[in-house]
């Protein structure tokens, strides 16, 4: 086929051929195109060749998905949560949240401490609080509760960071001997395991803070009782 076979209409018609081939041409356009094809051998050949090309495209089928979509959805959601936890913005948010809780608890305790001399210790994973009336207490630590809480939190964090570094090194070494598939599976397994640990740790911190809060309330009540007792001695019934 040479260019001299083409009429001015041919260019326009050929632009419409894909739409015609895929059934997207409106009725009016279809009639005009078919009329042209009936009289133009070059465009008829072109159309037949494109139809053949379209048929050939059918030969390329891609592999089917073998993954279970539900499982896939869960891993994606899991991955999103992992990323959320490790992104600096969110991490900052979490630290702020924790420090808010910590300083909230600390403020409550400082209120009690303004009246009572209190001794606190963090041992065996729990807070132990004892208090004495002013003057009767042998010890009153110089540092504020707020500071103590921060020290405890910092110790926890540094212990965790050290073990995290060890975990990371171990993981990287294991990864270097794996295929991509194995690596993905391992990563999923590790992130799931980490989540369990994280959830436990959050619960454990929550429990510690609740315990701490209850101690504060008990201390307040005890303080009130002691003041009542003292008042009772001076106020005639």
């Amino acid at each position: 086929m040479s260019n001299q076979d083409l009429t001015p209409d041919c260019g326009r018609i050929r632009n419409e051929l894909p739409a015609y081939l895929y059934g997207e041409l409106a009725a009016e356009g279809t009639t005009a195109l078919e009329q042209h094809l009936a009289t133009c051998a070059a465009c008829r050949d072109e159309q037949a060749a494109l139809r053949e090309t379209r048929k050939l495209l059918e030969r390329w089928e891609t592999p089917r998905c073998v993954e279970d979509p539900r499982q896939l959805a869960r891993s994606i959601a899991e991955l999103a949560r992992t990323q959320e936890r490790s992104s600096p913005q969110v991490r900052r948010g979490r630290l702020v949240r924790w420090s808010a809780i910590l300083s909230g608890a600390a403020a409550a305790l400082v209120f009690s401490l303004s009246v009572l001399s209190t001794q606190a210790a963090f041992a065996d994973g729990t807070f132990q609080i004892s208090f004495h009336l002013p003057g009767t207490a042998p010890t009153a630590s110089g540092s504020s509760w707020d500071e103590r809480m921060r020290t405890i939190a910092a110790q926890e964090v540094s212990t965790r960071s050290a073990s995290l570094q060890r975990d990371q090194q171990e993981l990287l070494q294991r990864f270097s001997q794996m295929t991509r598939e194995e690596m993905q599976q391992e990563l999923l397994r590790v992130t799931q395991a980490l989540d369990v640990v994280l959830a436990q740790r959050e619960r454990s911190w929550d429990t510690r803070l609740i315990n701490l809060g209850q101690e504060v309330v008990r201390a307040d009540l005890e303080q009130r009782r002691v003041i009542n007792d003292i008042a009772a001695q001076f106020v005639p019934r």
Binding site: R14, N15, L17, P18, L21, L50, E52, T53, L56, L57
Partner: peptide, 8 residues
């Protein structure tokens, strides 16, 4: 149109 022609 161009894509199909190239494939053709």
């Amino acid at each position: 149109s161009r894509g199909l022609s190239l494939l053709r």
